[in-house]
């Protein structure tokens, strides 16, 4: 569904990762693991078109549209934006040149707001919400943009444990029931691995790419556990 071919990523003259070949298939729950500065975030940003690749190709399956959930959104406190306006903005790509949203798009937005349990905040201002509620809004927006694949860049790093676990539950459900492919970066490796079906570990290059079960048996996991004890 999303494939990279000999992808080299970085900024200007600085190469961060070379010859990345990943092939993400439909329905997978992919977890990108790596130390800070390993390039996982740059890789994700390059895959969704926020960064230009230095060389190589990214091939996105024709029907796939991308939904992106950022880490946190630094929005100034009095930014006039209601939850409804933000979630609806995920439908923009469907609009082509129409200036206004149609009923169908409004229904789609309401469906996802219900699913993420934010319907009651519909007319509240984004900045009034808690961190967990804000991330729910951003996930709902991303889902409006795609029914195929979600890219999440440390989406829960600013949340408390309880909110994080609940949102992982939401992602799990979306992945399993609605067959939405999930690609997530998280430093909370343990929790992410509970839901992941596939792991890509990056450390200067891609050092591991395989199923979760394989990863659990691998040397990386022993290292990780060894470090924890």
């Amino acid at each position: 569904m999303i494939k990279t071919e000999n992808l080299t990523i970085g900024y200007d003259n600085e190469i961060i990762l070379k010859n990345v070949n990943i092939n993400i298939k439909e329905g997978e729950f992919v977890c990108l693991i790596g130390d800070n500065g390993s390039g996982k975030s740059t890789l994700l940003k390059t895959m969704i078109g926020l960064n230009k690749p230095l060389s190589g190709k990214i091939i996105i399956d024709g029907k796939a549209s991308i939904g992106y959930v950022p880490q946190t959104l630094q929005v100034q406190p009095d930014f006039p934006a209601t939850v409804n306006e933000i979630v609806m903005s995920g439908c923009l790509k469907k609009m082509k040149w129409r200036p206004f949203y149609t009923k169908k798009e409004r229904e789609l937005a309401s469906k996802y707001m219900k699913m993420l349990q934010i319907s009651q905040f519909k007319h509240r201002s984004f900045s009034e919400l808690s961190g967990g509620q804000q991330q729910r809004v951003l996930i709902a927006r991303a889902l409006c943009a795609t029914s195929k694949v979600l890219f999440l860049d440390e989406p829960f790093s600013a949340l408390d444990r309880y909110a994080t676990l609940k949102l992982y539950g939401v992602l799990h459900k979306i992945n399993r029931d609605d067959n939405v492919t999930v690609v997530i970066i998280s430093h909370d490796v343990e929790t992410t691995l509970r839901h992941a079906t596939r792991v890509v570990h990056i450390n200067e290059t891609i050092v591991f790419d395989g199923t979760k079960d394989e990863y659990m048996q691998s040397a990386f996991m022993k290292d990780y556990k060894g470090g924890a004890e």
């Binding site: 926020l50 991308i66 950022p70 930014f79 923009l92 790509k93």
Partner: peptide, 11 residues
């Protein structure tokens, strides 16, 4: 509101 998201959406 969110330039990165808009860009990722293809705007």
């Amino acid at each position: 509101f969110d330039e990165n998201f808009a860009k990722a959406m293809g705007i």
